[in-house]
């Protein structure tokens, strides 16, 4: 299937969804004016990918900021991944936060509570 790549802007993240190269990542800032419109291609891509996923999907979130409307869309994405896991596929979430950003680390733990998926929590020093 065709890869999806959305370039980052000052209010929206970089999105890379690439089955062939086994890359699944959302990184940067997320506070777009219209979250539903921004994330629609992402959820559509994942809905298609669900039907025929790769052997092991590691989905990376490396966000430096997201607003509350985006938090809802992130949960929607995680729920699509959860459905894949329920169907017997290998799915891992890699949640990356700046070492100094305790709120982002907390958010990762909160999502881990909300969905039945294995999480890896990582921190990094610089953007």
């Amino acid at each position: 299937m065709e890869a999806l790549r959305i370039e980052p802007t000052d209010d929206s993240p970089l999105v890379v969804l690439d089955r062939e190269n086994n890359l699944f990542e959302i990184s940067g800032k997320s506070l777009p004016e219209n979250v539903v419109q921004f994330y629609r291609p992402v959820t559509e891509w994942l809905t298609a990918y669900q039907k025929d996923p790769g052997p092991e999907t590691v989905f990376t979130f490396k966000l430096i900021y997201f607003n509350t409307a985006s938090s809802k869309m992130i949960l929607d994405i995680l729920m699509l991944l959860e459905e894949m896991a329920e169907a017997g596929h290998e799915v891992t979430v890699r949640w990356m936060s700046l070492t100094s950003d305790e709120d982002m680390q907390e958010a990762g733990k909160e999502y881990e509570e909300m969905v039945d998926l294995p999480f890896e929590h990582h921190t990094y020093e610089f953007e």
Binding site: E33, V35, V36, T68, A69, S71, K72, M73
Partner: peptide, 13 residues
């Protein structure tokens, strides 16, 4: 997400 684009989460957060 409402038609206005909010998720009803802002004040809580």
């Amino acid at each position: 997400i409402s038609a206005k684009g909010g998720a009803g989460l802002g004040f809580i957060d």
